[in-house]
Design a binder for these strands. Sequence first.
DNA 1: CGACAGATTGACGAAAGTCAATTACGGTGG
DNA 2: CCACCGTAATTGACTTTCGTCAATCTGTCG
Lengths: 234, 234
Amino acid sequence: MDHCSSCVVRNRAICSSLDAGGVNALGKIGRHHRLVPGQTLIWEGEDSTVVANVIDGVLKLSTSLSDGREQIVGVVYPSDFIGRPFGARAQHNVTALTDAHVCTFSSSDFDRFAREHPELEHKLLDRTLSELDRTRRWLLLLGRMTASEKLANFLLDMSERIAPSGCKTEAPLDSFDIPFGRQQIADILGLTIETVSRRLNDFKAQKIIAVPTRRRIEILNRAALSDIAATPNR
Amino acid sequence: MDHCSSCVVRNRAICSSLDAGGVNALGKIGRHHRLVPGQTLIWEGEDSTVVANVIDGVLKLSTSLSDGREQIVGVVYPSDFIGRPFGARAQHNVTALTDAHVCTFSSSDFDRFAREHPELEHKLLDRTLSELDRTRRWLLLLGRMTASEKLANFLLDMSERIAPSGCKTEAPLDSFDIPFGRQQIADILGLTIETVSRRLNDFKAQKIIAVPTRRRIEILNRAALSDIAATPNR
DNA sequence: CGACAGATTGACGAAAGTCAATTACGGTGG
DNA sequence: CCACCGTAATTGACTTTCGTCAATCTGTCG
């Protein structure tokens, strides 16, 4: 880990809680890895031996049942943290969806480092609390929403989280590529690919969205989409 | 907060990370509250002003849609921690299901205290990571399981988490009271009360469980129940 | 002994899943 | 640059599961 100081996520990842000396020390125990789409970094149930920072790319967290049913339980982007520090067993798979760069640490190294750096643990705690809130909101989507509501929320969520490289705006984009195929959308929303396809076509027919290519979405009528996405009670 | 040293959760709540002096200092900023069933401690969307430890009782975390659909996103037991420290807005309601005792702290007091006590933050981080893992497993249940599978998992989960006062065994109980009505079971599992009732009766007809009273469950055939609860792939 | 909320049961409908066939996209090689 | 191929996505017909609505039952508590 030679160039932490020039790392693109230096100021956004948990590293941002550390001063130059701390980052340097952390860098010494980290290793840079490249992942290709479909490559799995952590397997569910294995003794958790690595944690990591995402530098570039998109990865999914997933769990599955023995008959093959799969649920995606999280999607991570650059600057996000991966893995379960402090000795517990990995509870889900971590798999690259795109080409990805990650900065890995052995669990034991990271645990030791974290315990010596309260500022890092604080940052990680804050992130984990936010991720927990986000995941709990997802429970509402999976447990209580219809297919159309799920998709509307998904598209709005994507438009807020996807920022194509080179574009610095913070505002939600009306036109973007999603890093998921239909099966993955289905696995995120707890649906089948057929239902995803049908509801997406409903939106297309109503001119709420356009789908110029398989992976591109254009939101033509954001108000209508927000309307379909059942508003949480707050 | 006079008697932290005699608190029943002193050695299980996050307080267990503190020495006598620390607990004493924390006790000074905490206030003891009694809650009655149905009483709400925190409302979703309000500016988060309190966090708390559960001393006794069971509480639910829930979110709802404007049309009344509700999803329970968490259930907390004695020694569990409630709330979102470090300034974010409350994302869900916290409501007592039984008579309950909690030990509350103003967010700002707690935040300040936590930042001065890395051991406390570490403990909280470890718990939050575990809770995140648990919540993510719930996503699989809501997104990919049938009503029967959901109920089987729910019953097994309950049998492991419920320990009636006075009983010190760690083994799962085959006979226990659940602190939920049918509507709440439905809100946990993303079902309707009718479906809960029907599937429960299926289990009864198969002699897998008995339901001597509304709130009591007796597991007659744990193996069959585990069999229905689709096994995660690990 | 009622009365009421909570739970069960039944009949029906709607939403999403399943299975199968077809189409379209996107990458490859001629 | 175009034709071809394989994968992914769409579409259609049908089934299943769960939800909805309404009636009935039951146990809890005054």
